Amino acid sequence: MKRLLISLSCSLFLTGCNSEPTLQKYFIKKSGKSNFIVLDLTPNIFKMDKLKLTADEKKALDSFDKMNMLFFKSDSVSTTAYDTENKALKNLLNDKKYELLMRVGSGSDGASISYVGKDDEHIDEFVIYAAKKENGIAVVRVLGNDMDPSGVMTLLSLLKNANIDQKQLEPLKKLMK
């Protein structure tokens, strides 16, 4: 009986651990590495009085859980690292779970917006990807529950007008130096 419980526990543990690469695992793996900045932004970055928001703004803010941002700064001497990271991210975003909304650019430079969700009105994740050899790579994951494209645009406009919590943006300031 003891062996049965141990083997059952081990098999549950092993099947529960997905070894496939994911965008989330990529963010975790690159966090703290040179040339990378990873930020996690929570809804409290907006520092807004919900009483002053419109119904659409409240709905958009309530559907938003967090934003993960990854920045890779290109090395002007060697483009090998850029090419490697760009290829790895493109492979991750080619996963069938990501539905492409828009793509611009060509070759290794460009940008795309993809989503994960039941359909384009019930979205759990938006992914904004941009890459330019001279500058680097940026990936933004907007995570939430039942988001829609107009809600994400509303969030972005709220971000422009928000009294932003500067402490959450400290790692980004270091990258800009």
Score class of each variant (00 low, 15 high):
85 E>Q: 14
87 K>Q: 12
88 A>F: 03
89 L>K: 01
89 L>I: 05
90 K>P: 07
90 K>Y: 13
92 L>F: 14
92 L>E: 07
93 L>R: 08
94 N>H: 10
95 D>H: 10
97 K>T: 12
98 Y>E: 01
99 E>C: 13
99 E>R: 12
100 L>S: 01
100 L>T: 06
100 L>M: 06
101 L>W: 11
101 L>A: 13
101 L>G: 06
104 V>G: 09
104 V>Y: 14
105 G>R: 01
105 G>P: 09
106 S>H: 15
107 G>W: 14
108 S>E: 10
108 S>L: 11
109 D>K: 05
109 D>G: 07
110 G>P: 08
110 G>L: 01
112 S>A: 13
112 S>H: 15
112 S>P: 13
112 S>G: 14
113 I>M: 14
113 I>P: 03
114 S>R: 14
114 S>E: 13
116 V>N: 03
116 V>H: 00
117 G>T: 04
118 K>W: 02
119 D>A: 04
122 H>A: 09
122 H>S: 09
122 H>L: 03
125 E>G: 09
125 E>P: 08
125 E>V: 04
126 F>H: 08
128 I>G: 04
128 I>M: 11
129 Y>W: 11
130 A>F: 00
131 A>V: 01
133 K>Q: 14
135 N>S: 15
135 N>W: 11
135 N>E: 12
136 G>F: 03
136 G>S: 04
136 G>D: 04
136 G>M: 01
137 I>M: 03
137 I>F: 08
139 V>Y: 02
142 V>R: 05
144 G>Q: 06
145 N>C: 11
145 N>S: 15
146 D>Q: 09
147 M>W: 00
150 S>I: 13
151 G>E: 04
152 V>C: 06
152 V>N: 13
153 M>Y: 13
153 M>K: 10
